[in-house]
């Protein structure tokens, strides 16, 4: 790690956080993301399960993260590329037989109690793996802070997995979409070793629905479209 830091310091061009002068440069970062996808198909599926007598709980937020490369190509333009993943989960849970749970807990000296009292009987997992490329126009730049707006394409690979006690169903598909967002970047006064550190906050809207290509799915739509917000930290290269 130390060697990597030294290498990056030697070849890197730390941008001047807090300086008035602009200097082009790239940063790599990790983000944590929450999105609020449409997922109408999932809602209909959850409703159908509820109608069938299951207390099916469908999440309303898809959680995820991404690895990003953010570059200031000029004083007014910025680009970003990222790979990310987000996941929407739904489940019908059932409790373990209470006597068995207690006996296992006692028999294992209490370790059994560390595990959940419930298990997912019907377990729905919809995941989206995305590649995004976005170009931004810097609306405002002050020393140490910038606000930019941008848009670009997003390519999504989506998978759907539905597990029940004796079965497992899965399907997948891919498709091209669009993302538009507004981001706020703040240079940190603290450096990571010798590398400049920056924090980013981004919010926007994605349009990325995918049709599952499997025969049984008959073009079943996984719609990850919706607003999102993400926060991340970036280090200069």
């Amino acid at each position: 790690m130390t060697l990597l830091m030294l290498l990056l310091c030697t070849i890197g061009q730390p941008s001047g956080g807090g300086n008035d002068s602009f200097s082009p440069g790239f940063r790599i970062g990790f983000t944590f993301m929450a999105s609020f996808p449409s997922m109408q198909s999932e809602k209909d599926f959850a409703d159908m399960n509820t109608a069938a007598g299951l207390d099916f709980e469908l999440g309303s937020i898809a959680w995820g993260g991404s690895v990003e490369l953010l570059g200031d190509v000029s004083e007014k333009f910025r680009v970003r590329g990222s790979v990310g993943i987000s996941r929407l989960h739904g489940a019908y849970e059932d409790e373990y037989d209470p006597i068995s749970y207690i006996l296992v807990g006692i028999f294992t000296g209490g370790l059994g109690f560390l595990f959940s009292e419930t298990e997912d009987v019907v377990d729905l997992n919809d995941q989206a793996f995305t590649i995004e490329a976005q170009a931004y126009y810097v609306l405002s730049r002050t020393p140490g802070m910038s606000i930019s707006a941008g848009a670009g394409p997003i390519y999504t690979w989506a998978t759907r997995k539905l597990d029940s006690p004796n079965t497992a169903t899965s399907g997948s598909g891919s498709g091209l979409g669009f993302v538009a967002s507004l981001r706020l970047d703040q240079e940190s006064t603290v450096k990571l070793g010798c590398l400049p550190l920056m924090f980013g906050l981004e919010g926007g809207y994605r349009m990325n629905s995918v049709n599952i290509s499997d025969e049984e799915a008959d073009d079943y739509e996984l719609d990850f479209s919706g607003p999102f917000v993400k926060v991340g930290s970036y280090i200069g290269l």
Partner: peptide, 21 residues
């Protein structure tokens, strides 16, 4: 130590008769 209780719980399992299907 951690696998044993997990396996025991899985083997104890849920009561199939309680599934609403």
């Amino acid at each position: 130590m951690f696998l044993l209780p997990a396996l025991l719980l899985i083997s104890a399992g849920c009561n199939d008769s309680t599934y609403p299907f």
